[in-house]
């Protein structure tokens, strides 16, 4: 499948960048002409992944969070990458209501939200190796195709 467009975003793991990251990815995804619901889904999933990188990956120390987004025809692929502490037990981390930080009043629903709002969620992580979360969403609108035809005049 051919990549129509791609972008890469790098920012320090400060919580004020959560909003910046989700709004930026949503603006980029708009090139595929998604529905309002699809845009809201993408924003929410990106927010969860970036928040995880900041709270769990870097545990509120400062590191670099990288977000890569690739647009395909009718599909967006987003990767949220941190170089932080990594996840020991990915299966456990993905379970609804599981949180390693209950004292922070975290709900433990981050991965569940990502899985519900996106079509595919892949987590690659190991202790000390950082975490890479890949989010894929197929867009129901034919916007990607329309957009390309527009470009051809």
């Amino acid at each position: 499948m051919e990549v129509i467009n791609e972008m890469r975003l790098e920012f320090p793991s400060k919580s004020q960048n959560e909003s910046f990251a989700r709004v930026t990815v949503a603006a980029f995804a708009a090139q595929l002409d998604p529905t309002l619901e699809e845009i809201a889904d993408i924003k929410t999933a990106v927010s969860e992944a970036v928040t995880n990188a900041i709270i769990h990956g870097y545990e509120n120390t400062i590191g670099i969070v990288t977000v890569i987004a690739k647009l395909y025809e009718g599909k967006i692929e987003i990767e949220v990458i941190d170089e932080g502490k990594g996840i020991e037990d990915i299966e456990k981390a993905r379970q609804p209501l599981y949180t390693s930080k209950p004292e922070l009043e975290r709900s433990g629903m981050g991965f569940t939200v990502m899985e519900t709002f996106m079509d595919e969620v892949e987590v690659i992580s190991a202790p000390g190796q950082g975490t890479r979360v890949k989010l894929v969403k197929y867009l129901k609108s034919a916007g990607g195709e329309l957009r390309r035809n527009d470009g051809q005049g």
Binding site: S19, S47, E105, R106, S107, M109, G110, V113
Partner: peptide, 13 residues
Amino acid sequence: KFMDSSGIGVFIG
């Protein structure tokens, strides 16, 4: 305008 799962923790608390 926007809420993610961080809001869930706020409501539950």
